[in-house]
Amino acid sequence: MKVVTLRSDALAESEPLSGKPASAMIHIDRVSQRFQTSGRQSHLALSDISLTIDDGAFVSILGPSGCGKSTLLYIVGGFVSPSDGVARVKGKAITGPGPDRGPVFQEFALFPWKNVLGNVMYGLRQQGVKHSEAEAKSRKLLEMVGLKGYENFYPKELSGGMKQRVAIARTLAYNPAVLLMDEPFGALDAHTRTRLQNDLLNIWERDRKTVLFVTHSVEEAVFLSDKVVVMTRSPGRIKVVVDIDLPRPRKRAELLLDARYQKYVVDIEKLIDDTGEDEIHA
């Protein structure tokens, strides 16, 4: 936080993040997904997706509704297995969910029978961490996401923004290398959304997890990401990958005034609108 200018300059110059040599964290290799729909028909949701995501990169996926963004995320999560192609994490083919990839869903998906602390402790306990240790860690995490004092609340007693903070803490607890976020702030009001974006960015700047982030908001994608993947309407294909070359750490107030930021937003919005040929080059 103190080396704002220094670090952002360094980052603006060099492409690999935080000086680490860029190594692939996620490798999606010619993945297609076909769903059986009612009747004898089938629907091609994803067609021939190839994408490499570097370790520590923040990558957003944008695209029209129904283009297969969630499906792609679920494939990386190991919740859905692709009809064709392979997805790998750290070079290993994904065969199912694992604690190296932590999901955060728009619907929060908190366990209603557990209180806030119990939800956050869940993953640690599953990893075999002792109860007392898991509790201490979870309390720290909750403090970090600004929920100190809410440990004994049940999810139903929290606002949407607080629920999503708990969900993020629950996922961060087991320290996944990759965060898979499916419109995590989509159900929140604009104010809460902005706050959570800032908080997420702070967390990310600190431990540089690889993030795959699905959103409908172009501003959100540009503000947060290193790369923005724009997908086409069904069947979902990757239309273009835009590198977001903006200095970090990013400050919302500064960025909104930044002409480069504004241009990214406008260009990407056009790319999404545009169903035909892409005549705009970012």
Binding site: G77, G78, F79, G96, P97, G98, P99, R101, G102, P103, F105, E107, A109, F111, Y122, G123, Q126, Q127, R170, T171, Y174, P176
Partner: peptide, 14 residues
Amino acid sequence: VEQKLIWSAMAAGT
């Protein structure tokens, strides 16, 4: 049961 509850638990290592 909501699918995402099951996914969340599986990802956490259950």
